[in-house]
Structure formats: C-alpha cells, structure tokens
Design a protein around this nucleic acid. Structure first.
Lengths: 225, 225
DNA sequence: GCTGCACTGATTGTCAACAATCTGGAGCAA
DNA sequence: TTGCTCCAGATTGTTGACAATCAGTGCAGC
C-alpha cells in the first residue's frame, strides 16, 4: 500500500473524487463495464455533480473509464486484446526505463533495490504457497526502476496510467497461478544488470521478463473464464 | 492537416473547447507557460466555465497544461529536459510500434507507406531548401506506422499525447535546420525493413532514427535561444 | 402480428450565482 | 528601509436549477 493518503482536508473535491473513483475501480468495487451514474456517485461521495464530472474526465485520461457523449461513462473493459496491448506498451516503456535506470540510478537506490528483493524473497519463503503480496512487491520493484530512470514523463505514464490498469487486472486474477519464484529470479538478474550499469542487458532482461509474464497470463486466461 | 473537422453541430461543448484549446496551444496562439484564465477563455469561446473546466482537465491528461489547485492552469513549458524525456519515450513506443507494424501491416498499408515516401521526396525536391511541410509529412509517416501496429493503446498514446507535444515543439523550432534528406533516407530504410517483415531491424532503425533526431535538435538548441 | 411513432422518465450537458482561496498592495511598527 | 498584518480585488472551486438528449413503452396503423 503506497497510495496517496487522503487526508480529507487536502486538495480539491474533484481530486478527492478522482482518487476514490480510481480506488473503487482498481479494487473492483466498481465492476468492469459498469455504468457510472453521475447522480448516484455524487450523492454517494457527498458532493455535487460538477466536481464529479471533472473527476470522470480525469479518469478518462487515465484510460480507466470510457465515455460516450450523452450516454455516460463506464468502467473500462479489460478484455484480452486490451491486456495484450497493455503488456506490449509496458514492455517498451519499462524496457526503456530499465536502460535509463542502469545509467542514472544512484548506488543508494541500487542498494534499496536489492533490499527490496531480499524482503520479497523472505515473504515468499515465509508464506510458501499463499502469497497475496506478490503483486504489491512486484509493483514496488518496477516502480523503483521507473523512478530510477529520472524520466518524469516515463514515470508519469507508468505510475499514473499503466500500473493502475495492471493493478485492476491483478485484483481479478489474483486467485490464479503466480510464478513468483521465477519472477523473483528475473528481478534479481535485472537488478544485477543495473548494478553493473549494463543498460543493454537490463533492457533486454526487463523486456523478456514482461513478455514472459504476458505469455503466462495469456495462457492462464485460455483455460479460465 | 488531418485534424478532426469541427462541424460546430457535433459533440459537446467541452469537447469542442478541448479541441480549440489543443489547437491554440499547439500552434502557439497560447504561449508556453501562459496562464489560462477560465473567465477569459470561457467568454472567448462563448461558453460557460463548467465545460471549459472539463476541457482543461482533459488537456491536463494530455500533458498540454499543468494545473495547480486554487492557482489555475498554465500551458506546459517545453524545456530541454522535458523534450529529452519526450524523445526517449517516443523512441521506446515508436520502436515497439515499428516492430509490431512489421508483423501486422497489410501489404496495402505498406504500399501506402511507400507512396507517402515518394510524395514526400517530390515535395522536398520541388521546394529544395524551404520545406515547410516536412513536419507534417514526417507525422504522416510515423502515424501510419503507429496505426500499423494494431495496438490501440499505442496508437492513442502516440497520436493523442506525444504527437501533440511534438507538434507544439515543431511550431516553435520550424525556422531551425531541417535535415529532411537524411530523415527521408532513414524513413525509407524503415519502410523497407517493414516490407521485409523484419521486426527486429525495423525497431532498431526507428529507435536510431528518433534518437538521432533528438541529438540533432538538442545540438541546435545549444546554440539557439 | 408487426412496424413505426410519439410520449415519458431518467440521465447527461450547461449555466449563472455563491463560497472558498489566493495575490498584491496599503498601512503601520520595529 | 524592512518586515509584518490585514484588507480588497480577482480567480478558482462548488452548487443547485434548467435545458438538451437518449432509452424504453405503449398505442395507432398497416
């Protein structure tokens, strides 16, 4: 849990509504494809429709909802084709992030990366089998690398848009197979490539890691609903 | 000019305002860093502040404006660091688009690509020296490849966000050196790689093309304002 | 029985007024 | 002069009412 703390006495109503909506969508409280009734949500959040509409416009920019004029907004449908698109984009962006991180990360940040990996490994060993956190730990790793790229646009794209969609997806497939151990192993290789400042290798490994994850997920989706 | 036609009797006021604002920002009618006064713009567009605020929220999602609560929105400042970020992201995304296009483009689309290149070459030869269109022709080429990727998310990211920022940048540096001929040559190599269905090479060439463009632009910016 | 059309209810889009917040300067004290 | 407080104007944030548009229903006509 690394979300922004919503001290109710901060920011504007639109922004708060935007956060709550994002949360509700990502956690599945609002189902995929569900219609977002302005009146309903406004009363539920205790605000008026004005700020709510602005929040919806913002979520539209994050690709979390789709809006059609005069017909309202709906939670995005994460079908297989869209997920395929998402993983390809992710492969490109995180590959680049990795390359840049290998060049720009400070030694301290790299140390942090390894600490993260160790903690992650302990969690896996401790709860061998039932690992709920895997996704969050995974996000932390990828997020740290994005930060390490020092590329603000890359960071915004990944953290602000793609990762939300990914979390949304994971909340729904969390019951499915994990492959945490091979993922951890790959993470380690990536971190080592970064530590050795080998941008080419770091990018290659990250891309392979992500396309591998997609192959695995896509296979699972064949046999499951 | 391939923008959406704004038949005034279509869509909603927010959307129309959004288009007009985008246009105004990209063409420089609204200067970088300029403050966007809601009252002023609303009267200028002949609408009320409600739809205008929604439009601004949307532009914020496209990274064309930055908003700070209670202080208003400003046109984004395209400083060198941001442009560097932009070109890196572009390199990653268009590289991937190229790889996917090499696999997914139909023969007809590939033919169109070469027709585009030929027309572009004629324009360069015809107006040797003063080539205003270069940017638009360039956009057409890159856009066609994005479409060829068949990846809707990639298309949206490129056409909806990055290209707007790029156009915004070009409107300001259009008076600077061009390097249209080497760019055309590189375009041709890319198209040929796609025609041969060589995704690896197509991606490599596109990435080299874009990072080369950045080196050139960044050099020019050293010596100019 | 089926098609087409008007009506109705609900939902979204828009507006103008009101409240909250920020910015800049006048006035005063150290 | 410098620094502070406080006020006023302007700007943004929010609201509730009003207008426009859409989806579903029932009826008339064929």
């Amino acid at each position: 849990m690394s979300a922004q703390l919503d001290l109710d006495e901060e920011r504007t109503l639109s922004d708060k509504a935007s956060s709550r909506l994002t949360q509700a969508i990502v956690t599945g409280e609002l189902a995929q494809g569900q219609k977002l009734s302005e009146a309903d949500l406004a009363t539920r959040f205790g605000i008026s429709r004005g700020p709510l509409r602005e929040a919806i416009r913002q979520l539209e920019g994050m690709r979390l909802v789709t809006r059609v004029p005069h017909a309202g907004a709906r939670v995005v449908m994460l079908d297989k084709s869209m997920l395929a698109d998402l993983y390809r984009v992710r492969e490109a962006l995180e590959g680049m992030a990795c390359r840049m991180a290998a060049q720009a990360m400070s030694q301290t940040e790299i140390d942090t990366l390894f600490i993260l990996l160790n903690r992650h490994e302990e969690e896996i060993n401790a709860a061998d089998g039932l690992i709920y956190f895997q996704s969050e730990g995974d996000f932390d790793f990828h997020f740290q690398i994005a930060l390490g790229s020092r590329n603000q646009m890359l960071i915004d794209l990944l953290a602000g848009e793609l990762y939300q969609l990914l979390r949304m997806c994971r909340y729904r497939t969390s019951h499915l197979a994990k492959r945490t151990r091979p993922a951890l192993q790959q993470h380690r290789q990536i971190a080592e490539a970064i530590a050795e400042r080998d941008g080419d290798l770091a990018e290659l490994l990250m891309r392979r890691h992500i396309s591998g994850a997609w192959k695995s997920i896509s296979q699972i989706m064949e046999t499951n609903p």
